[in-house]
C-alpha cells in the first residue's frame, strides 16, 4: 500500500488535467461557457451528514423543503457511518421527487445549464484511502475551468473542474438530478426517467407519480410504461375514468400490449362497462395467453356479465 501511495504521489506532483475536462473544453457542444443555478438554498452539513444536507438542498430547490435532520432517518446507515448512494435516490422519490441518475460529466453540466442542481458523490481522498463526500453542484465556469459546489460548510465553493473530475471519477461518477415530478431532466434518457417515475409510484406518492408519468409522456408519447403507469396510479387514486383514459391511450399506441388491455378491462369492469370490459379482457388473452393474470381477468369479467344478466332477468 505504501508503495502505491508513493507512486500516486509521484504521478500527482505534475498536476493532473482531467481528460473529461479537456474534452469538454475542446468541444463544449451546446453547453454555454458559464452557467449557474441561483436559487439553491444552502445547508451546512452536520458531522457525517453531507448526505442529508445535500439532499435537503436539492429538495428545497425543487419545492419540497425538508430539514436535513428529518432526512437523516431516510438516508443515513449507522453501520456505515454515512449515507449510501441508492438511499439518496430512494429518499428523493419517497419525497415525491423525480430522481434520475446521470451519466457523464457532460450530462452533469448540461443539467446545470438547464437550471437543475445536481447531487454528486466525490471521493476526496485516494482509492486506497477514500474520503466519501456528497455535495451539490450549482454552477460551472468552463473558461475558468471551475465547478461551483455547495459542499460541507462552504456555500458556492469554487473547485477546479479537473480536481472535481478526479474526485468524482474516483467515486464511480455518481450524479443524480432531483426535480419536481412534472419537470424532466435535460440529459437523461426515456428508460431512466420512466424508471424514476415508477420509483415514485412504488414509494406510494401516487399524485406525484401521475405528474411524472404525464411529463414523460409529453416528451416520449410512445412510452408504454408511462401510459400504463399513469393508468395504474390514477386507478390507485380512485380516478376510474382517468385510468380508463390512460389505458385506452396505451392500447391506442400499443395495440399489442396485453397488459394494457388487461388493466383497461379491469377499470371498465369497475365502471360497469361490462361489454367493453369483456372485449378488452379477450384482447388481453388473445395477445398475452391464458396465463395469469389475463385468464383470471376474463373469467372475472364474464362472471360479472352473467351475474348482471341473471339479476336483470330476476327483475
Amino acid at each position: 500500500m505504501n508503495k502505491g501511495l508513493v507512486l500516486a504521489a509521484l504521478v500527482a506532483v505534475a498536476g493532473c488535467a482531467g481528460p473529461r475536462t479537456e474534452a469538454l473544453l475542446a468541444d463544449p457542444g451546446g453547453l454555454p461557457p458559464v452557467a449557474g443555478v441561483a436559487a439553491v438554498p444552502f445547508h451546512p452539513q452536520a458531522e457525517k451528514a453531507c448526505g442529508p444536507a445535500s439532499l435537503a438542498m436539492v429538495l428545497a430547490w425543487s419545492g419540497s423543503p425538508v430539514p436535513p435532520t428529518a432526512l437523516a432517518s431516510l438516508v443515513f446507515t449507522p453501520g456505515r457511518d454515512g449515507s449510501m448512494p441508492p438511499d439518496m435516490i430512494a429518499a428523493a422519490r419517497r419525497e415525491g421527487r423525480l430522481a434520475v441518475r446521470l451519466h457523464g460529466l457532460r450530462a452533469v453540466l448540461a443539467e446545470l445549464a438547464a437550471g437543475h442542481p445536481v447531487v454528486v458523490l466525490q471521493n476526496l481522498g485516494l482509492e486506497v484511502r477514500p474520503v466519501w463526500h456528497f455535495a451539490v453542484a450549482v454552477g460551472y465556469d468552463l473558461p475558468a475551468r471551475r465547478i461551483i459546489l455547495h459542499s460541507g460548510l462552504e456555500e458556492r465553493a469554487a473547485m477546479p473542474l479537473d480536481t472535481f473530475e478526479h474526485t468524482w471519477v474516483r467515486a464511480g461518477q455518481w450524479a443524480v438530478v432531483v426535480l419536481p415530478p412534472d419537470r424532466l431532466p435535460a440529459a437523461a434518457g426515456e428508460r431512466e426517467t420512466v424508471e424514476a417515475a415508477a420509483g415514485i409510484e412504488r414509494a406510494g406518492r401516487l399524485a406525484a407519480a401521475a405528474a411524472a408519468y404525464r411529463a414523460v409522456l409529453s416528451r416520449w408519447p410512445e412510452s408504454l410504461p408511462a401510459a400504463v403507469g399513469l393508468g395504474n396510479v390514477r386507478y390507485g387514486l380512485g380516478d376510474g375514468d382517468g385510468a380508463a383514459e390512460a389505458f385506452r391511450m396505451a392500447v391506442g399506441r400499443h395495440p399489442g400490449a396485453a397488459a394494457a388491455w388487461n388493466n383497461l378491462a379491469h377499470v371498465q369492469l369497475e365502471l360497469g362497462r361490462l361489454a367493453e370490459a369483456e372485449d378488452s379482457a379477450r384482447r388481453a388473452v388473445e395477445l398475452g395467453g391464458t396465463g395469469e393474470p389475463y385468464a383470471a381477468t376474463l373469467a372475472e369479467v364474464r362472471a360479472a356479465r352473467v351475474a348482471a344478466t341473471s339479476s336483470a332477468s330476476v327483475r
Binding site: E195, E201, L224, A259, A260, N262, T297, V306
Partner: peptide, 18 residues
C-alpha cells in the same frame, strides 16, 4: 358465483421489465 381466481392489474414495474 364463487370468487375463484384472483385477478389484478399488471403493475408498471412488470411493464418496464417486459
Amino acid at each position: 358465483i364463487p370468487a375463484t381466481t384472483f385477478a389484478a392489474l399488471v403493475s408498471t414495474d412488470e411493464i418496464i421489465a417486459a
